[in-house]
Design a protein around this nucleic acid. Structure first.
Lengths: 232, 232
DNA sequence: CTTGGCGCAAAGATATGACTTATTCAAGCG
DNA sequence: CGCTTGAATAAGTCATATCTTTGCGCCAAG
């Protein structure tokens, strides 16, 4: 999953540093300086910088250096960028953006899933809805989270749209972040669990509008909680 | 915008070759072979391969080689991957995926824009709606396309969500592709133009539900036309 | 005949020195 | 004052050497 080797390690230092603003846009780095500071060779520096360039986070220019790009340029859909931003200073902004994205995508995915889901998908959704109910009652936040992630991932996959399916890790990261940072009630709300069950039932029954509406209620609720809890 | 230098050139050969299936998943490349075949040095090959690795299109492994990854692994939101796929063999699948994404995102963006758009944004949208009407009547497809792209880009930007805003190039690519491949009527439909005007009016008037609904009609219509026209 | 470990060789990973090219900046000239 | 030119600089490229990991075959023990 991760980029291998020393280049990956260096990337794991530079990426978060840029994402968090520690290396502000406009900052100019020099390749040689990076070599020394991180104790790696040119080869490694160049590879890491190239990857950051492909994410539009830096722009190397001859005779100038490696310039950190403004946020607006960044490839904000890149999984690494999302992860780095979630880990760093603008976690709030990233969570808000992702919240809106979820509101847009997940209801649509649920509707598509109600049309296209395989029998296996439907079975899995039902099972997961049950698990959610059980773990919620037991106030087992850890396993609840696990099944919640699996539930949303399954809906996204069952939509049959590869792009939706790829948002699974992103959605997972949002849900994880929410639990980790105590943005959730200590015991999952009964109402939210009920909605998940409705989504599962609607998808199993092949009723797109119902699935879409229930899912929309879930993600809108999540976004509102986020807005109420996050700073600013 | 592009990756610079020889690594960029090599990337521009390997990426499309993989995206089009010419280099099928499972194919094993060797770095040395790439050096010879493309007449570049190790440095360049490694940089290009690293970028492809960060897109999850290849996975380098010692003692094995550089393996082309299955599609499901690819970072389907990466602008380069999208461009390569649109240019190559599975243009249809990519257009369909993007169509669904638009159906999910653009109505939500329009609703947000109705709440958050700046005065400049609103003015620009109105102006663009007029331009669309004019160029449609004149059957000036080229300039119609240009303004259509600007219109959708403006809505996405005016939503205030950076992730939505970043989909502007992607949406632009879809619209361009559609015009290029004669998937559009020779003269833009009066009805479609009218809907754009409705979106602009609703956003200017600060009416989210109206804006969302009109935009949904636009993108659903586009998706249906796509489905009707595309092979398979 | 099976199984487990040992070692070799293959292929990527890293380091480094030499050289090339583009770009900025400023000095010097008109 | 503006334009040209050249020197300095930093990235870009190449070639080569060395290191590290790991797949696979061979051989011996069970």
């Amino acid at each position: 999953m991760e980029i291998q080797g020393l280049a990956g390690r260096l990337l794991g230092e530079l990426g978060p540093a840029i994402a968090s603003g520690e290396l502000a846009p406009g900052t100019v780095l020099r390749a040689e300086e990076l070599e020394e500071r991180h104790g790696v060779s040119r080869t490694v520096v160049r590879e890491a910088v190239r990857i950051l360039e492909s994410m539009r986070m830096v722009a190397p220019k001859r005779r100038v250096g490696i310039t950190v790009q403004p946020r607006a340029e960044w490839d904000v859909f890149d999984p690494l960028v999302i992860r780095w931003r979630l880990a760093g200073a603008d976690r709030s902004a990233q969570l808000r953006s992702l919240g809106s994205l979820r509101v847009a995508v997940e209801p649509a995915a649920a509707a598509l899933a109600a049309r296209h889901a395989s029998d296996d998908d439907r079975r899995e959704l039902s099972a997961l809805a049950v698990e959610l109910t059980v773990t919620a009652r037991a106030a087992d936040l850890e396993r609840f989270l696990e099944h919640d992630i699996a539930f949303h991932a399954t809906v996204l996959r069952a939509s049959g749209n590869e792009m939706f399916a790829h948002l699974k890790d992103t959605v997972g990261a949002v849900l994880t972040g929410r639990t980790e940072h105590r943005l959730m009630p200590h015991r999952p709300r009964e109402y939210a669990v009920q909605l998940h069950r409705e989504v599962a039932d609607a998808i199993c029954a092949g009723r797109p509008e119902l699935a879409e509406q229930a899912m929309r209620t879930i993600v809108v609720g999540a976004l509102e909680e986020l807005d109420a809890t996050l700073p600013r």
